[in-house]
Design a protein around this nucleic acid. Structure first.
Lengths: 233, 233
DNA sequence: AGAATAGTGTCTATCAGACACTATGCA
DNA sequence: TGCATAGTGTCTGATAGACACTATTCT
């Protein structure tokens, strides 16, 4: 057993999470105001260190670490929220204190479940920011890059998957999904054309007809729900 | 300065690299036969630990670490090879010795540059394996997952980018690029239709007409090269 | 001359986008 | 009744795939 390799210095390992939610008709992102240096008083993404056992063995999975932090922050039960790995950031200068490598995740929260977030011990303040605003203000560390990358990733996914339903409750209408697509892409979409694309997903089994109708505008609309098939990336 | 956070146990951080190359008309991947436990005598992807300074600060960037290992293995100069982050694997059980989180990368090597690889100190043996064969044999750790993910990622990219030119020398023909697409996708492509897609990329500036022609089959064919525009993802 | 590949043309089904139109339920 | 939204139909241009065909050059 060559133990030698493991005596090398190790970096600290963190997860950071871009938590997006639909609030007041906007895409918003959860940010924390940092209590401590570095970047004290700056806004930052929620994150934390990955738990590793005392001897540097075992501990929790990365996805589990991200989910744990996500649920601490949102006060939501684990397992119910869409969470996906985004990218790993490891520049030696990204944290002035010590070497910290961070695995970034992004999470999509259904509308209405966002208001449970509370100020924890780590932060001075918790706030939901319109995504566009957050993208145009300084953030701690390389968190701005994480936001930018998340948006691009989502924009790409919309072409071939109905991921955006993760922002919606169990039953939703075509117009509701279209609205989210518009927010993410930053442009208006033709309702008729979007409808056809949507119905393709229904035919393919990714989406299914829901129960009853919902009135968001003038005329009640059919609701839909997840289909039997998972879209997987 | 709250140093407290950094006294928590840290995981070891590694990079693993899927190095693909075109050899003998096949897609091949570079594997090493492991000298030490765990998985002694098993085939594994090349990889290594990310360098971190003595006090656990600074050190090398992740991409740099991957490139360093890549160049050690292939004996090629840095900076010339396509290298992209794939995914980060962090299951607590992935390495039985200690907690090791691994950032996986994949690299695409131009044909003909593959033969410099030598057996280093770490390995018993170095070998190029046909990708399909490697995907159907047991590999150390979770390296099989890394291979599978790399293939899927590449297959996805071919739809909208000429990444596959990274497998080719500076000047190449349409048929050469098509051959690689066929290898990656595992299906035959219509030469005429592929040509039209190719010429779209030329029009878009991602590719450009090269100098002279090359004869791979019967009739000499026009060569092409990289265009001025980068395709970025 | 024959063979294999380079390169072109064409037909069709599908799809995205633009836009007009009908249907329905609420105020 | 008016109006905003749900939902349908239609036209057009772009695109992907299948496939036939011509052109070129090597042997």
């Amino acid at each position: 057993m060559a133990k030698a390799s493991f005596n090398y210095p190790r970096p600290a390992l963190a997860v950071d999470i871009v938590i997006l939610c639909l609030r007041n008709g906007q895409l918003q992102v959860l940010l924390l105001k940092r209590k401590n240096e570095p970047f004290q008083d700056s806004w930052a993404l929620p994150g934390g260190f990955v738990r590793v056992d005392a001897e540097g063995c075992g501990g929790e999975d990365l996805q589990v670490a991200a989910e744990r932090r996500l649920c601490e922050e949102t006060r939501l039960p684990p397992g119910s929220i869409y969470l996906e790995q985004l990218y790993t950031f490891g520049s030696p200068e990204r944290d002035p204190r010590t070497r910290v490598v961070s695995v970034a995740y992004y999470a999509l929260l259904p509308e209405g479940l966002a208001d449970l977030a509370e100020v924890g011990e780590r932060a001075l303040e918790v706030g939901w920011f319109p995504l566009q605003q957050a993208l145009n203000q300084p953030l701690a560390f390389d968190h701005l890059k994480m936001l930018q990358m998340t948006l691009r990733r989502l924009q790409g996914k919309l072409n071939y998957s109905p991921v955006a339903l993760e922002f919606l409750p169990k039953y939703f209408t075509i117009a509701e999904l279209r609205t989210i697509h518009q927010l993410i892409l930053g442009e208006q979409l033709d309702p008729g054309n979007f409808r056809r694309k949507f119905l393709k997903w229904v035919e393919a089994g990714y989406l299914a007809v829901g129960e009853g109708t919902r009135t968001t505008g003038k005329k009640p609309a059919q609701t839909y729900q997840r289909g039997l098939k998972e879209w997987i990336y």
